[in-house]
Computed example of a mutant assay.
Amino acid sequence: MKILYHHRIGSKDGQYVHIEEMVAALRRAGHIVEVVGPEGFEAQDFGGESGLVAALKARIPGAAYELLELGYNSLDYRRLARAIVRFQPDVIYERYNLSLLSGVLARQRFGIPLLLEVNAPLYAERSAYGGLALPRLARWAESRAWQGADHVFAVTEVLAARIVAAGVPRARLSVTPNGIDAQRFHRVTDEAPYKQALGLAGRTVLGFVGFAREWHGLDGVVEMLAADAGVHDLHCLIVGDGPACEGLRAQAATRGVADRLTITGIVGRNDIMQYIGAFDIALVPAVVAYASPLKLFEYMACGRAIVAPDQPNITEILTDGQDALLFAPGSRTGFTDAVRRLITDHALRARLAEAAHASCVARDLSWSANARQVGSVAERLCADR
């Protein structure tokens, strides 16, 4: 099947990982995939952001920027239409972005089924965190995109419920959580070689992967390092970067544990497992209510003992006491108590780690499984045309 993958992301970050992994999985499944996105995107380095987009956000009023976002459809639609004429796809697979309506327009003109992947309710997200100058326009655009697709793929049941509430029939919706590539991530049965390679031999490693923000609460982990006073030889390993990192470094220096905190900066996808393999305890300190955290599946695939919040989008995947320790969302005490329990209880740590990997395998939480589901829906839609 010929699949035209359409997106509007401007930075090579976690969004790009999802695109790269899904495209690769679809191709492994035997589909022919062509990707259509903003010009110059592929030339960026991992972690890079479009300089033009960043400059526009900083220099023009919010209403003008949001109108430009909507106006982008004129340019993008022409690019998408040219690709359709040239490539002759069976379906369009689009990564949802607020105000991106090119796929809906192409579906109407060319009669090609549109599959829409939704990773976040961006109207609600931007209203809550970034602000919207034209909220009614944004809400209309989101509803138009969701309802205009032939089938929608949401990353959690929590997000799926929001999409149904917006008017999309449940029969036109599937849940495909993030996953892993088994060629990149596999079970680790001995952390020692990974720790040795990082200069962390003998230490109990508390690990986090991703873009660290203040609301993740990683300052609580630094306080644990200080309170431990070397009893358990703790070390915090943050694999990534983010706005919280400077403050964490300063806090660690003030508390006298700077030598027990490592922040790697941006790490290439092929190297991440070399760090996760050194984790004794894998941390998900906080997560938004509708998200499917990529780190969670990487931790599971590597067989790490996980601490995560006890909230619906997490319990779709994990079970407290069975394949993770869960704590009340937002409870710093609950989080630190769960981590301390795993620091001292080695048997529980080993059992949860083994069970996390087993759950990942049993449920086939992989990009390949997601690609099979997308392919099945695409074939049905094409057969019904």
Rank of each mutant, 00 (worst) to 15 (best):
I3F: 06
R8C: 07
R8N: 00
D13S: 15
Q15C: 10
I19H: 07
A24Q: 09
A24L: 08
A25W: 06
L26T: 02
R27I: 01
H31P: 10
V33K: 05
E34T: 07
E34C: 06
E34F: 00
P38G: 07
E39Q: 02
G40S: 13
G47V: 11
E49G: 10
G51C: 00
V53D: 00
Y65D: 08
S74E: 13
D76L: 02
R78Q: 09
L80N: 05
F87Y: 15
P89N: 14
D90K: 07
R95W: 02
L100V: 11
L101R: 02
S102H: 06
L105Q: 07
Q108S: 13
G111S: 10
G111V: 10
N119Q: 08
A124K: 05
R126D: 10
S127M: 00
Y129M: 02
G130L: 08
L132H: 07
L132M: 11
A133L: 08
P135D: 04
A145Q: 02
W146C: 08
G148N: 01
A149L: 14
V155K: 10
L159F: 12
R162W: 02
V164D: 15
V164W: 05
A171Q: 14
S174K: 13
S174H: 05
S174Y: 13
V175Q: 14
T176M: 03
F185P: 08
T189S: 14
D190E: 15
K195I: 12
K195L: 08
A197L: 08
G199L: 14
A201S: 12
F208A: 09
F211I: 09
G217R: 07
L218M: 13
D219E: 15
V222K: 08
L225E: 12
A226E: 13
A227F: 03
C236S: 12
V239C: 08
G240M: 13
G240E: 07
P243C: 09
P243A: 13
C245S: 12
A250I: 13
Q251L: 14
A253S: 07
V257L: 14
A258L: 14
D271I: 00
Y275Q: 04
G277A: 03
A278T: 12
A278V: 10
I281R: 08
L283R: 04
V284N: 06
P285T: 03
A286K: 03
A286Y: 02
Y290Q: 12
E298A: 04
Y299M: 06
M300D: 15
A301H: 02
C302S: 15
P312D: 06
F327Y: 14
G330F: 00
A338W: 04
R340H: 08
R341A: 07
T344G: 12
D345L: 09
D345T: 00
A350D: 15
A356E: 04
R363F: 00
D364M: 11
D364Q: 03
A371G: 05
V374M: 11
A378W: 01
